[in-house]
Computed example of a mutant assay.
Amino acid sequence: MDACTPEPPCHRSGDNAVIVLGIGNLLWADEGFGVRCVERLQRDWELPGVALVDGGTQGLYLIQHVQAAERLLIFDAVDYGLAPGTLHEVRDDEVPQYLGAKKMSLHQTGFADVLALARLTGRYPRSVVLIGCQPEELEDYGGSLRASVRTVLPQAVARGLDILRGWGVAAAPRTRALDSAEAVTLPHLAIERYEAERPSADDACRVGDARFFPERS
């Protein structure tokens, strides 16, 4: 290769790092799907050699995780134009297209940029899999997953486990209690506590106050 010709992007090798990344915002209804998947994986399974990450809406700050991964599994709410609660899996070069084609919130375009930047730096995962779920409701600040999305969490996690096992991860049901310091989500945002303690829609308007946001005729 000529010295003036830039080297093409290459895959990482040697450390075989497996990273599972949940993207989204727990405070905006079905936007929390990705993080809830990672939370449930950690709650129910022991995954030696796997790093679980609550990516939230960190955007470009997630570059270090992508660059460190040999294999990257992503959970996210994605607008596929399908029925709410529908799961759809895409792999490798198709992943950025789905994370950037139909922007639902700031984090998606940001993460598509993260993948592009990782490729430009030559530190890109060998395998990337996105397990996306079609959301039902996003415009509900302080709300939680809708039933159509929450119902498929076990199915999404099961599919994620199949992928991890295919990558050689020796997944086993959790026998050791999870220390709160290890938890991917803060204790007060864990789904059981969040559901039990958040105000109802009657006590805290989450979709806009009609006095200030009147309906359009």
Score class of each variant (00 low, 15 high):
Cys37Trp: 09
Arg43Ser: 13
Asp209Thr: 11
Gly32Thr: 05
Gly166Arg: 07
Ile63Tyr: 01
Pro199Lys: 14
Ile74Glu: 03
Ser180Asn: 08
Val95Ile: 12
Ser13Arg: 14
Ala77Leu: 07
Gln97Met: 08
His88Met: 15
Asp113Ser: 14
Asp30Leu: 06
Leu87Ile: 13
Gly56Thr: 10
Val128Pro: 00
Pro48Tyr: 03
His107Phe: 02
Gly166Asp: 08
Glu46Thr: 14
Ala147Val: 10
Leu117Thr: 12
Trp45Cys: 02
Lys103Met: 08
Ile19Tyr: 09
Ala201Lys: 14
Ala83Pro: 04
Ile191Ala: 10
Leu26Lys: 12
Pro199Ser: 15
Lys102Arg: 04
Val20Glu: 02
Leu87Thr: 07
Tyr80Ala: 12
Ala201Pro: 09
Gly59Pro: 14
Trp167Glu: 02
Leu164Met: 10
Val184Cys: 08
Val149Ala: 08
Thr57Ile: 15
Tyr141Lys: 05
Val95Ser: 06
Arg12Trp: 09
Ala171Arg: 03
Pro135Ala: 13
Gly34Phe: 02
Asp92Leu: 15
Leu87Asp: 05
Arg174Lys: 15
Ser180Thr: 05
Gly122Lys: 03
Arg40Trp: 12
Gly143Glu: 03
Ala116Gly: 04
Ala83Trp: 11
Arg126Thr: 08
Gly85Lys: 03
Leu145Gln: 08
Val78His: 10
Ala68Ile: 01
Leu41Val: 05
Gln64Ile: 15
Gln58Arg: 14
Arg91Ile: 03
Val114Cys: 13
Gly166Ile: 05
Glu7Trp: 11
Gly55Lys: 00
Ile163Glu: 08
Arg36Gly: 04
Tyr61Phe: 14
Ile23Thr: 05
Pro6Met: 14
Ala83Leu: 12
Arg126Ser: 07
Cys4Gly: 09
Gly100Asp: 08
Thr5Gln: 14
Leu117Cys: 07
Leu82Cys: 13
Ala101Lys: 14
Ser13Met: 14
Leu62Asp: 01
Glu182Val: 02
Gln97Gly: 11
